[in-house]
Computed example of a mutant assay.
Amino acid sequence: MAGGGGDEKLTVSFVDGDSELSNVDIDKNSYVTEPAAPTKEGYIFAGWYSDSACTKEFDFKNTKITENTKIYAKFVANDEKFTVSFNTNGGSSIASQTINAGEKVTKPADPTKANNKFAGWYCDSALTQPYDFSSQVLSSFTLYAKWTAESGTYTVTFNSNGGSAVPAQTVKAGEKAVKPANPTKSGYSFSGWYSDASLITQYDFNSAVNADITLCAKWTSNGGGGGGGPVTPTTYTVTFCNNNETYATVSGITSGTSLGDKMP
């Protein structure tokens, strides 16, 4: 037994239920030394406790003996089974395990959680005591997942609609995409990046990125041909003839226009 106190002697009794296993006399305000684990046929020793109900483990390193004290041995039957549950704290679910007394928990595959990195299993909900998977299971309990937050990343893809290629960007969650240099397309002028394939909503590069997105280029024709944006309409000149003689011409007629009100 560890010593260092006064002259007064106290008795520490190690008991199993009402039966004394051993007694130790020590100085008051000293620390008692943990004895060898007792044995009991058909049972597994499960530790020393400060109460007869065996709910509070006795702390040999930090508990001074200030009065005559009983310390209780806990035993569990060899054939008893316990349930170990996993609280993933918002991560993917992990099934509970039924463990025979004295056996070990099988460490499950790590759970997952968006924008978080799994940081281990803990015995307490405050996440202060890591669980040792090499220890025997001698009661039912819950393990708690610890997470370390990490920023998610998203991909911003640029569809240049037939223009020069623009590299995709990887952007951290909540941050902004960098507006790239304008792409080029023969016969067209670049008219901006749009968040929809219909080229209705122009993209605001001051907005935060919180998902994978594709931006589409809009183009304006420089004078003919179409695709990728508004196109300047092609105009035609219509000639009116009578008996192979031209008697009128009308310019500026666009495709699809009715000639009814254009007749001279």
Rank of each mutant, 00 (worst) to 15 (best):
A114L: 15
G91W: 13
K185C: 01
A211T: 07
S164R: 00
K218S: 14
V238Q: 09
F58E: 11
T249S: 08
E20G: 03
T170A: 08
Y122L: 00
T11V: 06
N100V: 12
N244C: 03
G223R: 13
E41R: 13
L215D: 15
E67T: 06
G17A: 02
S251C: 03
A119Q: 12
K117T: 15
V171M: 14
K70V: 01
T66E: 14
Y203H: 08
S198F: 03
S50I: 15
T66L: 09
N78E: 13
V178D: 05
A181C: 08
D110Y: 07
V250R: 14
V231K: 05
G192A: 04
F60S: 05
E67W: 10
Y144Q: 10
T83E: 15
E150P: 11
S13Y: 01
A109L: 07
T98F: 08
A168G: 11
Q202N: 11
N29G: 10
S160N: 09
A217Y: 03
A165L: 09
K40A: 14
S135H: 03
D59C: 13
V178T: 04
T106I: 06
P38I: 10
G3R: 08
K9L: 02
G152F: 10
D25L: 02
N29S: 14
S160A: 13
T88D: 11
P230H: 04
A181T: 14
F75R: 06
M1H: 05
S140W: 12
P130R: 07
G163Y: 03
K61V: 00
V84K: 07
A53K: 14
D212W: 15
G260S: 04
G3C: 03
E34S: 07
V171C: 14
A2T: 04
Y131W: 06
T257H: 03
S19H: 02
W147C: 05
Q169T: 12
T237N: 05
V15Y: 01
S125A: 15
N62P: 08
I44H: 12
E245D: 01
V171A: 15
K28S: 02
K113S: 10
Y49Q: 06
N244P: 10
Y194K: 13
G260K: 06
K56F: 01
A217P: 04
A53M: 12
G3N: 08
A119G: 14
T63N: 05
Y122C: 01
T157L: 09
Q129L: 08
A181F: 00
Y247G: 07
G229N: 06
C241I: 04
I65C: 11
Y154E: 15
D27L: 07
K9M: 01
Q129K: 12
G256A: 06
A208P: 13
G163D: 03
D110E: 06
S191H: 02
A177P: 11
D132I: 11
N100A: 10
F141L: 02
E8M: 03
P130H: 04
S134C: 00
A149D: 13
N62A: 10
G252T: 04
N182C: 00
S134W: 00
S221L: 09
A211G: 05
T170R: 05
L143I: 09
F133G: 04
F141D: 01
T220S: 11
S164P: 01
S160M: 07
L21T: 00
D132N: 12
A114M: 15
W193L: 12
G229S: 06
E103V: 09
E34Y: 02
D25T: 02
W219P: 11
